[in-house]
Amino acid sequence: MNCDWLKENLSAYVDGEMNFITRWRIKRHLKECLECSKELRQLEKIHKLSKLAILVSPESHFYDRLKAKLPKVETIEHKKNRVFENIWIALPQGGKAAILVGIALILFLSVIYPRLSSTSLNIDRFEKEYLLSQETLTCVGEPATSLILTSE
């Protein structure tokens, strides 16, 4: 490790941004190099002073002036669509109850009621089956009598 490299990266060392091995090598170098040790002490003093400076509040209008000096950046505002939420809040209690009952009724009629109620069938289906038996299970049956069922 040479002194030039260390002087360039000393600030990172003070901030604790180095990994374990690099820190160990820097410490070893600082024990042997007086110039670098001196540099480290100066830097540590500056760090202490800067921490004290942060604790003091900036003077008034500091942030306004800072904002004026900064370049303008376009910001996108994410507005939440709260139309339904607003309508729901605006609704009277009776209206809310009516909507809930309506939803429950639709669910009942479309999902639950068909399972509860009996199935609906047409007699044609049974008649066709009957004719098929009449045709195939008797000895003088005629083929294709099922067409007799075709409605007029």
Binding site: S118, T119, S120, L121, N122, I123, F126, E129, Y130, S133, Q134, L137, T138, C139, V140
Partner: peptide, 28 residues
């Protein structure tokens, strides 16, 4: 497996009995 068909015959005619759990049957 919802409808059971039972066929009875005398050789020239058939009598067919269908049965199933309760259902509405449109009949004209």
């Amino acid at each position: 497996r919802k409808i059971v068909k039972l066929v009875y015959t005398n050789g020239l005619e058939v009598i067919v009995l269908f049965q199933r759990p309760s259902a509405k049957i449109a009949m004209g």
